[in-house]
């Protein structure tokens, strides 16, 4: 924690130093937002609407952080300080971290539906698993109606994830090679401890300091903790953050290898972690 703090103050300094001149994003009017109150969300055979129920739920459960206009300026926002506490999302921008779709495209309604239930780890965004599915579907429509993007664009097509192969020592080794080749370690560090050479200067799209994911400390990825979720995370990237998409540079089969290698860093029990104990896995060499 102590060294963490020091790192953050360094990081803040660096961020201020390198910060790009920020354009202030346009703030939409209530009338503009209301013009989209026929927004729908489709999850399986559920249809979500902007209706009395979702309006009530949003005002009761979400407004304190995300604000009346969905701009992330709820009254709690001022107390949240990145990078420890990312600011509530501005829904007007239509930019989302957790997507099954390629970088630069909108998430699917299912993506938002899952995110709302899951919450976002390492942030103030709680889990909302207590809601009924219909309530959540309605909230998806409600979140979408803040952004004109959901009218002008279609969500992206979810990436295809091939079935998960059997974990083997060869695959773990191959995954280590991918980790070295595409250089995840530049940000995440050679042991996944969020201490790569570029970690200290990272900022999100609004110039706020942000830390890479630390694989080793037991926290869950924001966008899901299954093997498929992790596959999806590095293939699509977390839009609005430095975490890029690798879809053009990692082949599907290699992507599974990489998932297995990442598992060897992570605390939860996994077959990859068991196998790794029997292998002599050294961290990748950053300067071969």
């Amino acid at each position: 924690m102590r060294t963490g703090l020091r790192k953050w103050s360094l990081l803040l300094g660096a961020a201020a130093f390198f910060a790009l001149p920020l354009t202030s994003w346009a703030q939409l009017s209530t009338a503009d937002i209301a013009s989209r109150d026929n927004m729908e969300a489709h999850i399986g055979n559920l249809t979500g609407h902007v209706n009395a129920r979702s309006t009530y739920d949003y005002k009761r459960y979400c407004v304190s952080c995300h604000g009346d206009l969905g701009d992330g300026n709820g009254e709690v926002a001022q107390w949240l300080d990145p990078p420890m506490w990312p600011k509530p999302r501005d829904f007007q921008m239509g930019v989302f971290k957790c997507r099954s779709t390629l970088t630069g495209s909108l998430p699917t309604d299912e993506d938002l539906f899952d995110t709302i239930a899951r919450g976002l780890d390492r942030s103030a965004m709680p889990q909302w698993s207590q809601f009924t599915k219909q309530q959540r579907a309605d909230l998806v429509a409600y979140v979408k109606h803040f952004s004109p993007r959901f009218v002008t664009e279609k969500p992206g097509t979810p990436i295809t994830i091939p079935p998960e192969p059997e974990v083997t020592p060869e695959r773990i080794k191959a995954g280590r090679e991918v980790f070295a080749r595409v250089q995840c370690w530049k940000c995440h560090g050679v042991q996944g401890m969020a201490n790569g050479p570029s970690a200290s200067t990272l900022t999100d799209d609004l110039g706020r300091p942000i830390a890479p994911f630390n694989f080793t400390e037991g926290s869950r990825p924001k966008c899901g903790d299954t093997d498929r979720d992790i596959y999806k995370i590095f293939m699509t990237g977390l839009d609005g953050t430095p975490m890029p998409s690798f879809a053009d540079n990692i082949k599907p089969d290699e992507a599974w290898d990489l998932v297995f290698y990442l598992r060897t860093f992570m605390q939860g029990a996994s077959k990859a972690k068991e196998l790794a104990k029997t292998m002599d896995l050294k961290p990748v060499n950053p300067n071969p």
Binding site: R181, D239, T241, P244, A247, D248
Partner: peptide, 9 residues
């Protein structure tokens, strides 16, 4: 619409 893609060697 922004995006963010890796470009390794």
């Amino acid at each position: 619409v922004g995006w963010n893609q890796s470009q390794p060697p």
